[in-house]
C-alpha cells in the first residue's frame, strides 16, 4: 500500500513543479520573443536610450509599487488604493518641501521625505488594520480608501490645484532623485536614479520575501490563512504589515514622480492601480495568493511595458494600447485557468 502510494505522489509533485516553472518560463519566453521581433522591426527599440533611459526609467516608479503590491497579493489580499496613496504622498512631499524651504534644502528635503514615508506607511496601516484586524473584505476597504485618499489629496491642495515647490533652487535640488545616475562604460551609458532605487527596493524585497520569517508567513497566509492561524502564526499582524509595506512603496514612487514632474496634482495617476495590479497578475501571482514572487512581477511589468512601448513605436494610439493591455491580461489569466484545469484533472 505504502510503496504504491509513494510513486504517483512523488511523480505528481515533480510534475506540478515543472509545470509551474514552465508556466513562468512561458511569459519570459514571450518577453524575449517580443524583444527579438521588436529589434528586427524597429531600429530604435534595442538602443540604450529606448530601453534603459526611456522604458526602464519610466517603469521604475510603478515597478516599486508593484513590488509592494506583490506582497499584499501573495498574502491573499488586494490594494486598489495605491494610486491615491501615491497622490497623497506626492502632495505631502511637495507641500512639505515648500513649507520647509526656509530651512534650506539640507533640512527640507530629508524631513519632507521622512514625512512622506510616514504618510505612506500610515495610509497602508489604515488599509491593513481594516482588512486584517477588523476583517473587512480587502476589495471593499481599498475601494473606499481609494476614494477617501484621493479626496484628502484634493482637500490638501485646495480643490485640486497642481502643487509646486516655489523655491526654484530647492526644486532643482530635488530633481536629483530623478536625474542623477550611475555612469557606466566611461560615461557612455547611464543607469538612472529611478532604476537604482527600484533595484535597491527589489533586493530588499527579495530578501524579505524569500529569506525571512515574514516572507514565509506571507506565503503561508495566502496558502491557507486559517491553517496558518491555527499553527500559531500571528496572521493579523503579518497581513497588516503587507499593506504597510505597500504604502511604503507608494511613498517611494511618489518621490520619483515628484522629482520627474516637479509638481504634484490631486488628479494625477488616475487608474494606475490597475496597471500595477495587472503587472502582478500577468507575472503569475494569482488572485487569492499563496504563490508568485517579485521576479515574476518584474517580468509581468516589463511585458506590459514593452508591448506598450512597441505599440508607441509603431505609432498606434493610446486608445488601442488600452485595448491591447486588457486583452493581454485576459489571455494570460485564461491560459492559466485552462492549464490549471487540465493539470487538475
Amino acid at each position: 500500500m505504502t510503496t504504491d502510494a509513494k510513486k504517483p505522489g512523488a511523480g505528481r509533485t515533480k510534475g506540478a513543479l515543472s509545470f509551474q516553472k514552465l508556466q513562468q518560463a512561458s511569459i519570459l519566453i514571450l518577453l524575449v520573443a517580443l524583444c527579438v521581433v521588436a529589434s528586427f522591426r524597429s531600429s530604435t527599440f534595442f538602443t540604450w536610450t529606448n530601453l534603459v533611459d526611456n522604458l526602464f526609467t519610466n517603469a521604475a516608479a510603478l515597478g516599486v509599487v508593484a513590488l509592494g503590491m506583490t506582497f499584499v497579493m501573495i498574502g491573499g489580499g488586494f490594494d486598489l488604493s495605491v494610486a491615491s496613496t501615491i497622490v497623497v504622498c506626492s502632495v505631502v512631499l511637495v507641500m512639505g518641501m515648500d513649507w520647509l524651504s526656509p530651512y534650506g534644502a539640507a533640512v527640507a528635503i530629508p524631513v519632507a521625505l521622512l514625512l512622506t514615508v510616514l504618510v505612506g506607511v500610515i495610509l497602508g496601516a489604515i488599509n491593513g488594520t481594516l482588512v486584517a484586524y477588523v476583517g473587512v473584505n480587502p476589495f471593499v476597504v481599498t475601494l473606499c480608501t481609494m476614494l477617501i485618499f484621493r479626496g484628502i489629496a484634493q482637500i490638501l491642495t485646495g480643490g485640486g490645484q497642481t502643487q509646486q515647490v516655489r523655491d526654484i533652487l530647492l526644486r532643482r535640488r530635488f530633481d536629483w532623485v530623478y536625474d542623477a545616475g550611475l555612469r557606466l562604460f566611461g560615461g557612455g551609458c547611464e543607469i538612472s536614479m529611478p532604476i537604482l532605487i527600484f533595484l535597491v527596493v527589489f533586493a530588499v524585497g527579495m530578501y524579505l520575501l524569500r529569506f525571512t520569517r515574514f516572507g514565509h508567513y506571507v506565503y503561508a497566509i495566502g496558502g491557507n490563512e486559517e491553517a496558518a492561524w491555527l499553527a500559531g502564526v500571528n496572521t493579523h499582524r503579518i497581513k497588516a504589515l503587507t499593506y504597510v509595506l505597500c504604502g511604503f512603496t507608494c511613498a517611494i514612487a511618489a518621490a520619483i514622480f515628484v522629482a520627474k514632474t516637479e509638481t504634484a496634482g490631486a488628479e494625477s495617476h488616475m487608474g494606475k492601480e490597475l496597471v500595477v495590479i495587472a503587472s502582478v497578475i500577468v507575472g503569475g501571482t494569482p488572485l487569492g495568493g499563496g504563490s508568485g514572487g517579485l521576479t515574476s512581477t518584474v517580468i509581468g511589468l516589463l511585458l506590459l511595458r514593452i508591448i506598450d512601448n512597441l505599440l508607441t513605436q509603431f505609432s498606434i494610439g493610446p486608445e488601442y494600447r488600452t485595448v491591447v493591455t486588457g486583452l493581454i491580461i485576459l489571455v494570460v489569466v485564461t491560459v492559466d485557468v485552462l492549464a490549471k484545469r487540465r493539470s487538475g484533472k
Binding site: H216, Y219, N224, A228, L230, A231
Partner: peptide, 18 residues
C-alpha cells in the same frame, strides 16, 4: 484540509511554520 495543511506550500514550510 481546511485548518491544517497550508496548501500550495512545500512540506518543509508546513513542518517549520511554528
Amino acid at each position: 484540509k481546511q485548518q491544517g495543511s497550508i496548501t500550495g506550500r512545500p512540506v518543509s514550510e508546513n513542518l517549520n511554520i511554528s
